[in-house]
Design a protein around this nucleic acid. Structure first.
Lengths: 248, 248
DNA sequence: CGATGACTTGACTGCTGTCAACGTGCGTGG
DNA sequence: CCACGCACGTTGACAGCAGTCAAGTCATCG
């Protein structure tokens, strides 16, 4: 992990052939940028993508105010994105699982608007944006999928806004757990039992709560029989109860 | 205004030639979709745009779950977008001023994710999304600008997330006022004196606060000499103080 | 096995929401 | 033109949820 105090720097990563899986053969095919793109065009997309040595827990993929060059698809592991206030407080704005795209909010200004940091050992596919735009001119389906992904992320942000603006602490945590459950499910993992890759601190931060509050909530929800939690391992034992709580 | 109780419906609007200003001649040219697009291509864009009779304060431009057909550029007036929770509570997610684009978060699902309602008499340019995508295939600059706009809106959401998650009530209001100030300025209005088109209720809702809190904050900030407020008219009398408060 | 960071639990405080009453401005209709 | 009604906005009193501070437990890793 980067030492606190020293300003974070995105780790410079050398290209390595290891773990190179073509888009066509990638298990995340159905969740990622390739959705709706035919085999031939996929080969072209594959061609511009750079695959890199995995980054370690705590390493930065990019840092706010870095020049924007690429967007990134998570291949394995997970990331968080966050912003810093001037006085150094952090706001976690998202968690990214395999198949999800990070860095889209930098397109507008040409500079990264947030920082992205690995929650565990994580590999990503780097997609140089200039190349992607060029490719998009010849493959409309690619642009359409990019627009869809961005639009969905806008939607995600709005759900989060709703959580932070209108929901009590308990509802927020329930909503996050159900959201993660669904996303793990889509990725072929269990949707009722999973390991959180993010710390209590990150969860609290994302939900706009204090760590202690999150901790108390986990305990209470366990007492109430809706989940079993031991450290970062969570099992949802009463999804309906959770849903009622989250009102989703 | 729609009667409370009856479910809101987007007003069906007939096309009218009135107030028809071509994109080339529109004063919002530099703020809107046309940025970076040359004169010839602009004529094509102009061709697909529909201009409509103004909608009245309280009318809906679209409602969440409406089928997605078009995005809209605000020509004059202003809008708010909002979501409803299942139990009917509202979360305002954005205010839109002339030159800003509404409806982008519907691209992903093909269905509007939020509702958009006029805060005052408002005219919009309707841009059918299918046509726009088609045009984008021939005019890459158009797609680029669309991506930029979406990316900027993602950025806006993240700033708002930061406000709701990490900021005290006073900082939130200061940040909103400075943000509006800047946006009014860009549009050629005064950036230190303006009329809010949104009610205290909408402001409170947007900032995740109670109306009473917002009202108290306006009073306190006036006592502290950073602004003068009378009903919806606001004059920022000490922008530096406001900035210090908002920490922007 | 000890050190360090992550997490939990408890005690207390304070910000902001809720409830309530009152003031203000605007449009409508007599 | 004025009186009325209604929506919007302001102010005050009070309470509760969640934050802060503090201490202690647990887990992980060298």
């Amino acid at each position: 992990m980067n030492q606190p105090g020293s300003p974070p720097v995105a780790v410079p990563l050398t290209d390595l052939p290891q773990g190179k899986v073509a888009c066509q053969d990638c298990s995340l095919h159905q969740l990622c940028l390739p959705v709706g793109i035919d085999r031939k065009d996929l080969a072209e997309l594959d061609h511009i993508i750079k695959r890199r040595r995995p980054i370690q827990r705590g390493d930065h993929l990019f840092v706010a105010s870095d020049k924007f060059r690429s967007i990134y698809a998570v291949r394995s592991g997970s990331l968080k994105t966050y912003n810093l206030t001037e006085d150094g407080r952090e706001q976690v704005t998202g968690f990214f699982l395999p198949g999800e795209i990070v860095g889209l909010d930098a397109i507008g200004e040409g500079v990264h608007a947030c920082s992205a940091r690995a929650l565990e050992t994580t590999s990503v596919c780097e997609i140089p944006f200039e190349d992607l735009e060029g490719l998009g001119e010849r493959i409309p389906a690619l642009t359409h999928q990019l627009l869809r992904i961005m639009s969905k992320e806008m939607h995600h942000d709005q759900v989060l806004l709703m959580l932070l603006g209108k929901r009590a602490a308990e509802e927020r945590l329930a909503a996050l757990l159900l959201n993660l459950s669904q996303r793990y499910g889509l990725r072929g993992y269990s949707s009722i039992e999973f390991n959180l890759s993010m710390s209590r601190h990150d969860i609290a931060n994302y939900l706009g709560l204090a760590v202690e509050t999150v901790s108390r909530l986990f305990s209470r929800m366990q007492e109430d029989g809706m989940l079993a939690v031991r450290s970062r391992h969570v099992r949802l034992t009463d999804i309906d109860k959770l849903r009622a709580l989250a009102r989703v």
